[in-house]
């Protein structure tokens, strides 16, 4: 039975491909592939069909399927292109086989048509979806690593002075990283002063404030000093409203002011070279950070 269906399909592949193409063209508007050029779309569609027919012919060989999925992933096409395409193939093929059978009332036969087509299509779907999700998982885990590396950077700007610029939302996981990097970095770089810059932190709530206070206390315990800089006016207001007392901590409105006081703490100052004003000197140093 199965061989009979397969013969019908393989002998009439041109007609089935044509029906499939007509159906899939309508899908282009609804499944996110509208901005793909017509030529590339048509040629990829043909390749897609070849892959399916090759797989059916060779009793479920997956080599071409794998290559094809790689291509679609590289093109950045949505998964729905593949799943919708295979769905249409299933429908079109079942229709075609049924219309070529003599005995349309034989329910057993109709059932086995569905069964056969499913048996051809399912391994292909499974393979393609697996390739796709494997690729996504890899991207997500790479981005996780990239984000972690970005999340609490420590910059040893000059001897004994280190800056940690924080940008974006701080969640519990990130707060832990901030603490670890701050302590490890302070020790590794032999810093005396650490500037934490929160210019880029959108909301400072009690959780964030609590973690920063704890970090500052921990830095103090290992013999360094922590200065909180980049407190925007609206953040200063919300911190006050929250009733959080930062008077025990050094705070400065800008990185520039923080840096100046870090120099002072480490017993240094900026001395103008001949011909250059002090302001210019400071600006040059700040710009070079």
């Amino acid at each position: 039975m199965e061989t009979k269906f397969k013969r019908i399909v393989l002998e009439n592949s041109d007609a089935i491909v044509q029906m499939w193409m007509d159906n899939v063209r309508n899908l282009k508007d609804e499944n996110y592939t509208t901005n793909i050029g017509d030529e590339l779309y048509e040629s990829t569609n043909r390749e897609f069909m070849n892959v399916i027919f090759t797989s059916i012919q060779s009793q479920g060989s997956m080599e071409e399927v794998e290559q094809f999925s790689e291509k679609i992933i590289n093109l950045g096409w949505p998964l729905s292109y593949i799943t919708d395409g295979l769905q249409v193939f299933r429908r079109v093929t079942v229709d075609y086989i049924l219309s070529n059978l003599d005995d349309m009332d034989d329910t057993e036969q109709i059932k086995s048509v569905f069964q056969s087509v499913d048996d051809w299509v399912e391994p292909i779907i499974r393979k393609l979806v697996n390739e796709y999700t494997g690729n996504w998982e890899q991207i997500v885990s790479l981005q996780r690593v990239a984000l972690q590396e970005l999340s609490a950077p420590l910059i040893p700007v000059m001897d004994r002075i280190t800056i940690m610029p924080l940008i974006g939302t701080i969640d519990t996981e990130r707060a832990k990283l901030i603490m670890e990097n701050l302590l490890q970095g302070t020790i590794n770089h032999n810093s005396e002063v650490v500037l934490i810059d929160i210019t880029g932190v959108p909301v400072v709530d009690t959780m964030v404030a609590h973690h920063i206070i704890q970090a500052a206390e921990a830095v103090h315990l290992i013999g360094a000093k922590c200065i909180l800089v980049g407190i925007r006016p609206e953040i200063a207001q919300t911190i006050v409203n929250l009733g959080i007392d930062l008077s025990d901590f050094s705070t400065k409105s800008s990185l520039k002011k923080g840096f100046m006081s870090a120099l002072e703490i480490t017993n240094r100052k900026i001395v103008p070279l001949e011909g250059k004003s002090r302001e210019e000197q400071i600006k040059n140093i700040i710009d070079s950070i």
Partner: peptide, 17 residues
């Protein structure tokens, strides 16, 4: 205002947390 936006965002953060 920007300050009130920050106040509202912070209040939501507290309640949600």
């Amino acid at each position: 205002s920007t300050v009130d936006q920050a106040r509202i965002a912070t209040a939501i953060s507290e309640l949600a947390r």
